[in-house]
Protein backbone atom coordinates (compact mmCIF):
# COMPACT_ATOMS: atom_id res chain seq x y z
CA UNK A 1 0.00 0.00 0.00
CA UNK A 2 1.31 3.41 -0.94
CA UNK A 3 2.11 5.68 1.93
CA UNK A 4 -0.69 7.94 3.00
CA UNK A 5 -0.20 11.60 2.09
CA UNK A 6 0.47 13.80 5.08
CA UNK A 7 -1.87 16.69 5.60
CA UNK A 8 -1.12 19.76 7.65
CA UNK A 9 -4.35 21.07 9.17
CA UNK A 10 -3.90 24.60 10.41
CA UNK A 11 -5.20 25.35 13.91
CA UNK A 12 -5.15 28.13 16.43
CA UNK A 13 -6.29 31.73 16.69
CA UNK A 14 -9.96 30.84 16.50
CA UNK A 15 -9.92 28.28 13.70
CA UNK A 16 -12.53 25.78 14.79
CA UNK A 17 -13.31 23.20 12.12
CA UNK A 18 -9.93 21.48 12.29
CA UNK A 19 -11.18 18.25 13.87
CA UNK A 20 -13.92 17.47 11.39
CA UNK A 21 -11.74 18.57 8.49
CA UNK A 22 -9.02 16.17 9.63
CA UNK A 23 -11.62 13.48 10.07
CA UNK A 24 -12.91 13.95 6.52
CA UNK A 25 -9.40 13.78 5.09
CA UNK A 26 -8.54 10.72 7.13
CA UNK A 27 -11.63 8.98 5.87
CA UNK A 28 -10.33 9.72 2.41
CA UNK A 29 -6.95 8.20 3.23
CA UNK A 30 -4.71 11.02 4.46
CA UNK A 31 -2.63 11.17 7.60
CA UNK A 32 -3.46 14.40 9.37
CA UNK A 33 -1.61 16.56 11.84
CA UNK A 34 -3.12 19.58 13.52
CA UNK A 35 -0.51 22.28 13.49
CA UNK A 36 -0.74 25.62 15.25
CA UNK A 37 0.24 28.66 13.23
CA UNK A 38 2.86 29.59 15.81
CA UNK A 39 4.39 26.15 15.54
CA UNK A 40 4.68 26.52 11.79
CA UNK A 41 6.21 29.91 12.29
CA UNK A 42 8.67 28.68 14.90
CA UNK A 43 11.08 27.23 12.34
CA UNK A 44 10.32 29.82 9.73
CA UNK A 45 7.80 27.59 8.01
CA UNK A 46 10.38 24.98 7.02
CA UNK A 47 8.20 22.20 8.37
CA UNK A 48 5.45 22.95 5.88
CA UNK A 49 7.48 21.36 3.10
CA UNK A 50 7.18 17.86 4.57
CA UNK A 51 3.42 17.82 4.02
CA UNK A 52 1.60 16.98 0.81
CA UNK A 53 -1.65 18.75 1.70
CA UNK A 54 -2.22 22.08 3.42
CA UNK A 55 -5.70 22.70 4.78
CA UNK A 56 -7.06 25.97 6.09
CA UNK A 57 -10.21 24.95 7.93
CA UNK A 58 -13.22 27.04 8.77
CA UNK A 59 -13.61 29.03 11.91
CA UNK A 60 -13.43 32.53 13.24
CA UNK A 61 -9.76 33.38 13.10
CA UNK A 62 -9.24 36.47 15.21
CA UNK A 63 -12.98 36.49 15.82
CA UNK A 64 -13.53 37.77 12.28
CA UNK A 65 -12.61 41.18 13.65
CA UNK A 66 -11.97 43.91 11.05
CA UNK A 67 -12.84 41.56 8.18
CA UNK A 68 -13.17 37.78 8.06
CA UNK A 69 -9.85 36.17 7.22
CA UNK A 70 -7.91 39.38 7.00
CA UNK A 71 -5.85 39.26 10.17
CA UNK A 72 -4.77 35.67 9.64
CA UNK A 73 -4.04 36.44 5.99
CA UNK A 74 -1.78 39.25 7.13
CA UNK A 75 -0.04 36.91 9.52
CA UNK A 76 0.81 34.71 6.55
CA UNK A 77 1.88 37.74 4.54
CA UNK A 78 4.15 39.14 7.17
CA UNK A 79 5.38 35.93 8.81
CA UNK A 80 5.08 32.93 6.50
CA UNK A 81 4.70 34.18 3.01
CA UNK A 82 7.69 32.51 1.43
CA UNK A 83 7.12 28.98 2.77
CA UNK A 84 3.50 29.18 1.70
CA UNK A 85 4.42 30.39 -1.79
CA UNK A 86 6.93 27.60 -2.07
CA UNK A 87 4.32 25.05 -1.07
CA UNK A 88 1.82 26.45 -3.53
CA UNK A 89 4.32 26.70 -6.38
CA UNK A 90 5.19 23.04 -5.90
CA UNK A 91 1.65 22.20 -7.03
CA UNK A 92 0.56 20.45 -3.84
CA UNK A 93 -3.08 20.88 -2.91
CA UNK A 94 -4.00 23.79 -0.66
CA UNK A 95 -7.62 24.02 0.36
CA UNK A 96 -9.38 26.76 2.29
CA UNK A 97 -12.87 26.17 3.56
CA UNK A 98 -15.08 29.05 4.67
CA UNK A 99 -12.80 31.12 6.90
CA UNK A 100 -9.87 29.39 5.22
CA UNK A 101 -11.16 30.57 1.85
CA UNK A 102 -11.51 34.09 3.22
CA UNK A 103 -7.87 33.92 4.32
CA UNK A 104 -6.69 32.77 0.88
CA UNK A 105 -8.76 35.47 -0.81
CA UNK A 106 -7.48 38.20 1.52
CA UNK A 107 -3.98 36.96 0.91
CA UNK A 108 -4.44 37.17 -2.84
CA UNK A 109 -3.45 33.50 -3.21
CA UNK A 110 -6.92 33.23 -4.68
CA UNK A 111 -7.42 33.99 -7.46
CA UNK A 112 -3.62 34.28 -7.35
CA UNK A 113 -3.29 36.79 -10.18
CA UNK A 114 -0.37 39.20 -10.49
CA UNK A 115 1.69 37.26 -7.98
CA UNK A 116 -1.10 37.59 -5.41
CA UNK A 117 -1.25 41.36 -5.80
CA UNK A 118 -4.56 41.45 -7.63
CA UNK A 119 -7.55 42.53 -5.57
CA UNK A 120 -10.27 41.96 -8.13
CA UNK A 121 -12.48 39.87 -5.92
CA UNK A 122 -13.42 39.74 -2.29
CA UNK A 123 -15.84 38.09 0.11
CA UNK A 124 -18.28 40.56 1.58
CA UNK A 125 -21.06 40.54 4.15
CA UNK A 126 -23.95 38.41 2.91
CA UNK A 127 -26.49 40.28 0.87
CA UNK A 128 -29.10 40.06 3.62
CA UNK A 129 -26.64 41.20 6.25
CA UNK A 130 -26.97 38.03 8.31
CA UNK A 131 -24.96 35.05 9.32
CA UNK A 132 -26.76 31.99 8.02
CA UNK A 133 -26.52 28.27 8.55
CA UNK A 134 -28.31 26.67 5.63
CA UNK A 135 -27.85 23.62 3.44
CA UNK A 136 -27.20 24.40 -0.19
CA UNK A 137 -26.42 22.54 -3.38
CA UNK A 138 -23.23 22.97 -5.35
CA UNK A 139 -22.60 22.18 -8.98
CA UNK A 140 -19.05 21.35 -9.91
CA UNK A 141 -17.92 23.39 -12.89
CA UNK A 142 -15.31 22.38 -15.41
CA UNK A 143 -12.24 23.87 -13.77
CA UNK A 144 -8.50 23.65 -13.51
CA UNK A 145 -8.83 22.19 -10.03
CA UNK A 146 -7.58 18.59 -10.29
CA UNK A 147 -9.36 17.33 -7.22
CA UNK A 148 -12.81 18.68 -7.96
CA UNK A 149 -13.65 16.92 -11.19
CA UNK A 150 -16.80 15.16 -12.31
CA UNK A 151 -18.58 15.21 -9.03
CA UNK A 152 -22.31 14.89 -8.64
CA UNK A 153 -24.29 17.70 -7.12
CA UNK A 154 -22.92 18.26 -3.62
CA UNK A 155 -25.21 19.06 -0.72
CA UNK A 156 -23.62 20.75 2.26
CA UNK A 157 -24.12 23.62 4.67
CA UNK A 158 -23.02 27.22 4.45
CA UNK A 159 -22.34 28.78 7.82
CA UNK A 160 -21.05 32.27 7.37
CA UNK A 161 -21.84 35.95 7.56
CA UNK A 162 -19.30 37.15 5.01
CA UNK A 163 -19.44 34.89 2.01
CA UNK A 164 -20.76 37.06 -0.76
CA UNK A 165 -18.36 36.83 -3.68
CA UNK A 166 -17.97 40.33 -5.07
CA UNK A 167 -16.12 40.98 -8.32
CA UNK A 168 -14.46 44.21 -9.39
CA UNK A 169 -16.08 44.13 -12.84
CA UNK A 170 -17.65 41.83 -15.41
CA UNK A 171 -14.16 41.38 -16.77
CA UNK A 172 -13.15 39.67 -13.58
CA UNK A 173 -15.81 37.06 -14.22
CA UNK A 174 -14.53 36.58 -17.77
CA UNK A 175 -11.03 36.15 -16.44
CA UNK A 176 -12.17 33.54 -13.93
CA UNK A 177 -14.12 31.72 -16.63
CA UNK A 178 -11.29 31.78 -19.12
CA UNK A 179 -8.81 30.53 -16.56
CA UNK A 180 -11.21 27.75 -15.60
CA UNK A 181 -10.96 29.06 -12.06
CA UNK A 182 -14.60 28.70 -11.04
CA UNK A 183 -14.82 25.38 -9.23
CA UNK A 184 -18.24 25.50 -7.58
CA UNK A 185 -21.44 27.39 -8.11
CA UNK A 186 -24.52 27.39 -5.91
CA UNK A 187 -27.19 25.34 -7.66
CA UNK A 188 -30.93 25.68 -7.76
CA UNK A 189 -32.99 23.21 -5.76
CA UNK A 190 -35.36 23.09 -8.70
CA UNK A 191 -33.13 21.89 -11.51
CA UNK A 192 -29.55 21.79 -10.29
CA UNK A 193 -28.60 24.60 -12.63
CA UNK A 194 -26.86 27.78 -11.51
CA UNK A 195 -28.85 29.30 -8.65
CA UNK A 196 -30.51 32.54 -9.58
CA UNK A 197 -31.83 33.75 -6.27
CA UNK A 198 -31.87 33.49 -2.49
CA UNK A 199 -31.90 31.09 -0.73
CA UNK A 200 -30.32 28.76 -3.32
CA UNK A 201 -27.63 31.38 -3.65
CA UNK A 202 -27.48 32.01 0.07
CA UNK A 203 -25.33 35.10 0.22
CA UNK A 204 -25.86 36.90 -3.06
CA UNK A 205 -22.54 35.84 -4.59
CA UNK A 206 -21.78 37.16 -8.05
CA UNK A 207 -22.75 34.60 -10.67
CA UNK A 208 -23.52 32.21 -7.81
CA UNK A 209 -19.82 31.50 -7.32
CA UNK A 210 -19.18 29.36 -4.24
CA UNK A 211 -15.62 28.22 -4.78
CA UNK A 212 -12.64 29.11 -6.96
CA UNK A 213 -9.11 27.92 -7.61
CA UNK A 214 -5.88 29.55 -8.74
CA UNK A 215 -4.70 29.31 -12.32
CA UNK A 216 -2.70 26.16 -11.64
CA UNK A 217 -5.73 24.64 -9.94
CA UNK A 218 -3.96 23.37 -6.84
CA UNK A 219 -5.20 26.12 -4.52
CA UNK A 220 -8.94 25.97 -3.97
CA UNK A 221 -11.23 27.89 -1.66
CA UNK A 222 -14.93 27.47 -1.05
CA UNK A 223 -17.44 28.98 1.35
CA UNK A 224 -19.65 25.94 2.13
CA UNK A 225 -18.47 23.16 4.42
CA UNK A 226 -17.85 19.85 2.62
CA UNK A 227 -16.31 18.33 5.76
CA UNK A 228 -19.80 18.40 7.22
CA UNK A 229 -21.20 15.96 4.74
CA UNK A 230 -18.84 13.02 4.60
CA UNK A 231 -21.10 10.74 6.59
CA UNK A 232 -24.64 9.85 5.69
CA UNK A 233 -26.06 10.85 9.08
CA UNK A 234 -24.76 14.39 8.65
CA UNK A 235 -27.29 15.06 5.91
CA UNK A 236 -30.35 17.01 7.00
CA UNK A 237 -32.63 14.59 5.16
CA UNK A 238 -31.22 11.21 6.05
CA UNK A 239 -34.22 10.36 8.22
CA UNK A 240 -36.26 10.10 5.02
CA UNK A 241 -34.26 7.00 4.15
CA UNK A 242 -32.71 5.71 7.36
CA UNK A 243 -30.11 2.98 7.16
CA UNK A 244 -31.68 -0.42 7.74
CA UNK A 245 -31.90 -1.36 11.36
CA UNK A 246 -29.46 -4.09 12.28
CA UNK A 247 -30.30 -6.58 14.91
CA UNK A 248 -26.95 -6.06 16.56
CA UNK A 249 -25.63 -2.50 16.87
CA UNK A 250 -23.58 -0.92 14.12
CA UNK A 251 -20.48 -2.96 14.84
CA UNK A 252 -19.51 -3.61 11.25
CA UNK A 253 -20.01 -0.08 10.07
CA UNK A 254 -18.05 1.28 13.00
CA UNK A 255 -15.24 -1.14 12.33
CA UNK A 256 -15.01 -0.24 8.70
CA UNK A 257 -14.97 3.49 9.31
CA UNK A 258 -12.33 3.05 11.96
CA UNK A 259 -10.18 1.39 9.35
CA UNK A 260 -10.87 4.29 7.05
CA UNK A 261 -12.29 1.92 4.47
CA UNK A 262 -14.70 3.21 1.88
CA UNK A 263 -18.16 2.00 2.68
CA UNK A 264 -19.84 0.31 -0.21
CA UNK A 265 -23.42 1.43 0.00
CA UNK A 266 -23.71 5.02 -1.25
CA UNK A 267 -26.03 5.81 1.61
CA UNK A 268 -23.27 5.24 4.13
CA UNK A 269 -21.30 8.19 2.89
CA UNK A 270 -22.07 11.86 2.64
CA UNK A 271 -21.81 13.09 -0.89
CA UNK A 272 -18.88 15.42 -0.19
CA UNK A 273 -16.50 12.60 0.58
CA UNK A 274 -15.52 12.49 -3.10
CA UNK A 275 -13.95 15.91 -2.79
CA UNK A 276 -11.64 14.77 0.00
CA UNK A 277 -10.80 11.62 -1.92
CA UNK A 278 -9.89 13.85 -4.83
CA UNK A 279 -7.62 15.96 -2.64
CA UNK A 280 -5.85 12.90 -1.25
CA UNK A 281 -5.53 11.35 -4.69
CA UNK A 282 -3.95 14.44 -6.19
CA UNK A 283 -1.55 14.69 -3.24
CA UNK A 284 -0.22 11.21 -3.81
CA UNK A 285 2.13 12.22 -6.58
CA UNK A 286 4.11 14.54 -4.29
Amino acid sequence: MAEKPRACILTGFGINCEQETAHALEMAGARCELVHFNKLQADGGEALGQYQIFMLPGGWAFADDIQSGRVLANKFRFKLQEPLRKFIDSGKPVVGICNGFQVLAQLGALPGWDKWESRELTLMTNRNGRFENRWVRLRTEASACPFAQDMDLLTLPVRHGEGQMALASPKTLDKLEEGEQIVFRYASARDGLKADSYPDNPNGSADAIAGICNEAGNVMGMMPHPECHVRYLQSPNWTERPPKAQEKGGFLSSLSSMLGAKEKAPQDAGNCRALFEGIVESAKKF
Binding site: N16, C17, E20, H23, N133, R134, R159, H225, P236, W238
Partner: peptide, 23 residues
Amino acid sequence: VIRQYDHEVQGMSVIKPLCGKKA
Protein backbone atom coordinates in the same frame (compact mmCIF):
# COMPACT_ATOMS: atom_id res chain seq x y z
CA VAL B 1 -33.25 32.85 14.73
CA ILE B 2 -32.01 29.26 14.41
CA ARG B 3 -30.36 29.95 11.06
CA GLN B 4 -28.30 32.72 12.56
CA TYR B 5 -26.75 30.23 14.94
CA ASP B 6 -24.18 27.82 13.67
CA HIS B 7 -25.82 24.57 14.68
CA GLU B 8 -23.54 22.15 12.83
CA VAL B 9 -19.92 23.11 13.42
CA GLN B 10 -17.80 20.15 14.61
CA GLY B 11 -19.75 17.99 12.16
CA MET B 12 -21.55 15.86 14.74
CA SER B 13 -25.09 16.97 14.07
CA VAL B 14 -27.50 14.15 13.25
CA ILE B 15 -30.87 15.66 14.15
CA LYS B 16 -30.69 19.39 13.56
CA PRO B 17 -33.00 22.02 15.02
CA LEU B 18 -34.95 22.21 11.76
CA CYS B 19 -36.07 19.13 9.92
CA GLY B 20 -37.91 17.92 6.85
CA LYS B 21 -37.72 18.47 3.13
CA LYS B 22 -37.43 22.26 3.32
CA ALA B 23 -36.06 22.26 6.85
